[in-house]
Design a protein around this nucleic acid. Sequence first.
DNA 1: TCAACAAATGGGAACGTTCCCATTATAACA
DNA 2: TGTTATAATGGGAACGTTCCCATTTGTTGA
Lengths: 334, 334
Amino acid sequence: MPKRPTIIDVAEYAGVSKSTVSRVISGGSVRETTRRRVMTAIEALGYEHNAIASSMRTNRTNIIMLAIPDITNPFWPDVARGVQDVMDDAGYAVVFANSDWRGSREKMFLRMAQRNRFDGILINPIQVTATELDETHLPTVLIGSRTDYPGFDSVGSHSYDGTQQALKHLFSLGHRRIGLIQGKRVNRPGASRMKSYLDFLDEHSLPRDDTLIVEYPFDQRGGYQGAIDLLTLPVPPTAILAANDILAMGALQAAHDMGFAVPGDVSIVGQDDIFAAKITVPPLTTVAKPKYEIGTQAATVLLARINGETDRQWQQHLFPCRLKIRGSTAPPRE
Amino acid sequence: MPKRPTIIDVAEYAGVSKSTVSRVISGGSVRETTRRRVMTAIEALGYEHNAIASSMRTNRTNIIMLAIPDITNPFWPDVARGVQDVMDDAGYAVVFANSDWRGSREKMFLRMAQRNRFDGILINPIQVTATELDETHLPTVLIGSRTDYPGFDSVGSHSYDGTQQALKHLFSLGHRRIGLIQGKRVNRPGASRMKSYLDFLDEHSLPRDDTLIVEYPFDQRGGYQGAIDLLTLPVPPTAILAANDILAMGALQAAHDMGFAVPGDVSIVGQDDIFAAKITVPPLTTVAKPKYEIGTQAATVLLARINGETDRQWQQHLFPCRLKIRGSTAPPRE
DNA sequence: TCAACAAATGGGAACGTTCCCATTATAACA
DNA sequence: TGTTATAATGGGAACGTTCCCATTTGTTGA
């Protein structure tokens, strides 16, 4: 295998110095005639720029990392697309990392980002602490509405408010006994949703009932189990709010299997509005989040940080949620 | 910001040469006592290995690229997970690239892989030719059952056979007039599925009817449109086979909207068995593909190529498909 | 036409590793 | 204990860029 040509080879071929070739490549100021000479040399030799050598000098890799729990959850592909579309345009490659809800993997990925001198990190944190993130010394933007990481930019949706919308909707339909299926986090609960739920109860003088709150892994089986727990209560809830659509879809299935009509016997509301929410039967009422936009915005903020274009303090970007009322909610049976 | 320590700093601190530090890091043979000295120095200085500098010397980046059309299609996240799980264990980072069915983007990504000296490429090719792939000089494994890229390893599923299974199932239920919704490819048709379909017709002496074959983009709307085309025919088919589940789900919706009962008036079969196929109403009969396994296998084959562990010629790895009979198929109405 | 100045170009060091080869320390054996 | 073989270590070049600074070339205006 013939050795790959370097800028030195190109320089010789074109009869200029390697500095000039470098300038041509990186868009420095060169005379038009020499630029053309160099370009033909590049063509002739089949020269391919070596990003590694370049990174070595510039301390820039043009690679960022996107660390999420699990690409298999349909929420994330949309976010990922948003990230990629922005990053592609900016000439960055995006490395994916699935922590799989495991803190150890998350840490491994952070080390990987450091070793490889990636230019930045987008992360939906699982276990990692703010200090650990700080220690990477890499520009970092959080994805998700997290208030427990002061000092970091974050991009997410206003899930507290979204939960309120869902509950208001159910309340106005006449529901007074509303179950909550939480997604189990390794370390911390889906704090804002839970708080929103409790606040709502208090505000409308509804009793807090711990049996109405169940917590299961963020997958369909989790939702299924959760719904079974709730619907087998002595006095089952007339409505169920799930922390995301996957859980809600599991709940839908459980209700179906147990002979509960949806929305006749029990109303179900999800969150996220993944593509499949439209095609369940009945179609799922859900709190829609602008997934793609979260991705593009997170990427944009990160780029700004990387390029030092913003000296502003860290900032939280929260997109509003929108309740999509579909067929899975109705007034409770008399 | 203090300069990052290098192995030279570590060497000084530990009182050894940089060569020794290098050996400690990369697992060369060093005396246990010196290894410990070096390790404490690394700890003390907070040294982080510089993968860029390393790559520069070794021509290894430990990064591979996974190029697919669109991560947003639920088929791909599963494959991606498989790829990542294997690559993580091998210490590789995976860069994602969504060509978005555009050949120009695909080419851009290949150049990126070259520039960045990635160690290998996993690709579900859209427009790129075998020659172009060859010219990257990077170990490449194709994902999908493609026979039109001689010289390349490929990992996919036996979709010809899967289509046969689906058709046999429909045929044995009594269907004789079966529509096909194809996914539109930018450049070439889903050849094996189409061939399988036509072969089946011939074999069972069913008439070829061009109006029974429609082609639309690989999304839900495409499936919707396709089904409308088919169901508004003077003599509509009693069963529809869609090229993937997303198309099938669109078809399901269209049938529903047009007042066709599924499976009463029309049976529908999808392909892939994405997670949402289980939760449609009725649940979708579909040709299941081992998505995760395709991912792990593709990654494994690529690793073998990268490490030169195989001098075998290129090889096609085809997983068998399995028909999952659910609720969307039944005998045709008399 | 010649300064004076700006623009274009060239040369060489530097980035932080790895790897080859030479050298030194240790172990094994007679 | 001396000799030889082996293991451990050190020194320096090399990987292919970029960037600084010095030098050359070109341009402009009196």
